[in-house]
Every structure is written in structure tokens, then in C-alpha cells.
């Protein structure tokens, strides 16, 4: 039930981002400067943090989507749906920890200075 709700919410969020993302990428057809200016906003701390949210949403949607496919097509799928839910939660955390580190590395050093 909650995985179904989360699948919907992440799906809708990613859909709206895709709309914006195709529009911003289309600026490569206008001028290099127009594109570089909009991409610079992607590098600001707040948008950078939103990107972590986006990657987290996509990753959950992808993992849970695989789980849905297994439930639908694998004979043993429905029996293991709960175990598969916990599996994808663990995989999500394991991938998001290093992912978040690399995505925010630059922003954090920029804001708070290098520790070394």
C-alpha cells in the first residue's frame, strides 16, 4: 500500500521534472550562453540538494518498478513481495549514501570550506 503511494508520488514528481528538463536542455539550440546560464542554476546549493531528492525519487521508482515486474511475472513474486520491498529499501539506502556524498561534495566544500 505505501509502496504504491510512493510509486505514484515519485512518478508524478519525476514526470514534472522531465518536462522542465527537456525545456532547459532545448536551450542548447538557442545559444551556448543561454544554456550555460540555466545549467549554472543546477549547480547552486539549493537546486543541488533538490537533485539528490530527484535521484532518490528516480531510484526508488526504478527499484520498486522492478519489484512490480517480479510480482507480476515471477510465479513466486507475490509470495515474496514483502521481502522484496525490504530488499529495495536496503539497496536504495546503500546506493544513496555514496551517491549523496558525490552529488553534494562540491557544494559542501564550497559552502563550508575544505576540512584539510
Amino acid at each position: 500500500m505505501w509502496s504504491w503511494v510512493a510509486h505514484r508520488i515519485t512518478g508524478v514528481l519525476v514526470f514534472f521534472f522531465l518536462f522542465v528538463h527537456v525545456l532547459d536542455t532545448a536551450l542548447v539550440r538557442v545559444s551556448p550562453d543561454a544554456y550555460d546560464r540555466v545549467i549554472d542554476t543546477y549547480k547552486t546549493p539549493i537546486v543541488n540538494l533538490l537533485e539528490v531528492g530527484l535521484v532518490g525519487a528516480v531510484l526508488f521508482h526504478a527499484l520498486n518498478g522492478i519489484r512490480i515486474i517480479l510480482i507480476d511475472f515471477w510465479a513466486q513474486g507475490p509470495r515474496h513481495q514483502k521481502a522484496m520491498l525490504w530488499t529495495i529499501v536496503v539497496v536504495w539506502v546503500v546506493l544513496m549514501v555514496p551517491g549523496t556524498y558525490f552529488m553534494l561534495e562540491h557544494t559542501v566544500t564550497d559552502l563550508f570550506g575544505s576540512a584539510s
Binding site: D36, I39, K43, N48, E51, V55, V58, G99, F102, H106
Partner: peptide, 22 residues
């Protein structure tokens, strides 16, 4: 996931993206 890995995580992530990169 390949797109996100390349664009947001590897080799400096989004910080290195500009017109020349595209």
C-alpha cells in the same frame, strides 16, 4: 539510472556540465 550516474555523480557530477560537455 545510467544518465543520472554520469550526469550527477561521476567525475564531478553536475558541476562539470556546460554547452561544451553536451
Amino acid at each position: 539510472l545510467g544518465h543520472l550516474l554520469i550526469m550527477n555523480i561521476l567525475d564531478g557530477g553536475v558541476q562539470r556540465i556546460n554547452f561544451g560537455f553536451v
